[in-house]
Design a protein around this nucleic acid. Structure first.
Lengths: 229, 229
DNA sequence: TACGATGATATTGTATACAACATGAATTGC
DNA sequence: GCAATTCATGTTGTATACAATATCATCGTA
């Protein structure tokens, strides 16, 4: 009756998911080495499953595999950062338009809950988690648009955006919660496709303009500490 | 001095590449079982590397992994087939426009060579290879547009399109080589972005309309035979 | 002291061994 | 004869062992 959709911990998917979450929440930063032995010991699995998880993340360009060197959290170049936003600009405005035409009351409720969670995380001093939830908001919109393929692409792009923000975020202090998500919610609730498309377009441009594309790589605390969650 | 970009055969990438090529050229058809032992024996590598290659292909949705059952060449549903074309319609016309603004003489020459190869393959009775080259044409345009991220997405979509064609192609006899690629080449050579975008849009619609989305799965010849190349 | 060579250590790349599961055939009971 | 169960076989899931490569410290020499 439970559809068996639950994820078994301790398997490849589980490790990949936990690593990805840690990266999304900026607990492990771009450039960090992900040693197979170390990760395996932390999660209590063998190198075999760790390797599979790392290859999966590498395919999403969250980590970079260097032959005979190992896996590292990816460090998108300024150019790659630009490309990510150009791809998002290509996909997300039109997707938001579709979502506006399809959103049900349940969808709106779920989006509202996302925004609430995001605020709560910020209030509790967990900016990493807030950022992660902010990304989920975009993915949820793609899901509402009922286009799994495009939603998959957007998921990848949101992930990489998290890396870009870790590297190039300019004004760290404030404005993390723009009003854009509220505006998107309003557009979707009204079923206003034009508005949804425009708001999304502007939102992405705002995000891009809040970056400073001169690299700033930071040091890294211990992996074991970061992967506790 | 050679940049080390060459691909070592007998490694994960090599196996993945050869399997992908066989799928693209319709030598192995949707639904075919890809047994780890069998593939490993054919390519002379252990299950370890075969598994890695299969996971890579699974991430591109060229194969489907069923837990404890194994890997099978993916069989996109009619709905997934639609989604692939919708995603392509979202990405490729605008990408073609960008390509038109950037194409150099060398780019044009390369595209022309692609078309020639495609014709040659058709003339030599290798429709599978012609189809593969036809896909490369689209990927090459994305590459000219100088957007690696989007080009990666398009590569995935072209791959899946090959599966869709294997399953749902209506008129098998003729028209494989439409004039669309010539028209695209002309638009790019003139640097006419509007025309490139329009032609690409129409080309994709033509492709979609040439499908019959009532499934027709066919049997499969021996793997060993198909993977000789 | 600076530079290069050499060897020890550690990590990844690959193959293999064992365990868990699925599949299908043979057998037994009705 | 038919159905259900059991067991034999084969395939995948995971862990481990070994080989190849990179890294880094030590030593020697100019």
């Amino acid at each position: 009756m439970d559809d068996g959709q639950q994820v078994i911990e301790g398997t490849t998917e589980g490790v990949a998911r936990r690593l990805a979450l840690a990266i999304h929440e900026h607990r492990v930063l771009p450039g960090a080495k992900l040693s197979e032995d170390e990760v395996g010991e932390i999660f209590g699995v063998s190198r075999t499953v760790v390797r599979a998880a790392l290859q999966q993340l590498a395919h999403d360009q969250l980590v970079t595999l260097r032959r005979n060197k190992g896996a590292f959290v990816a460090q998108p170049s300024p150019r790659e950062a630009h490309e990510v936003f150009e791809a998002r600009a290509l996909l997300e405005p039109r997707t938001a338009r579709s979502a506006a035409a399809r959103a049900t009351a349940a969808d709106i409720a779920r989006l509202r809950a996302h925004i609430a969670d995001e605020h709560a995380a910020l209030a509790e001093g967990e900016p990493g988690r807030a950022l992660y939830l902010s990304g989920l908001f975009h993915i949820e919109i793609a899901r509402i648009a009922d286009q799994d393929t495009v939603a998959g692409f957007i998921t990848q792009l949101v992930s990489r955006t998290s890396l870009v923000i870790a590297l190039y975020w300019k004004r760290r202090n404030a404005l993390c919660e723009s009003h854009a998500h509220h505006a998107l919610l309003a557009a979707l609730e009204k079923g206003d496709g034009d508005m949804a498309e425009q708001v999304m377009k502007g939102h992405l441009l705002d995000l891009l303009s809040s970056l400073d594309l001169r690299a700033s790589v930071e040091p890294q605390v211990s992996l074991r500490e970061a992967l506790r969650a």
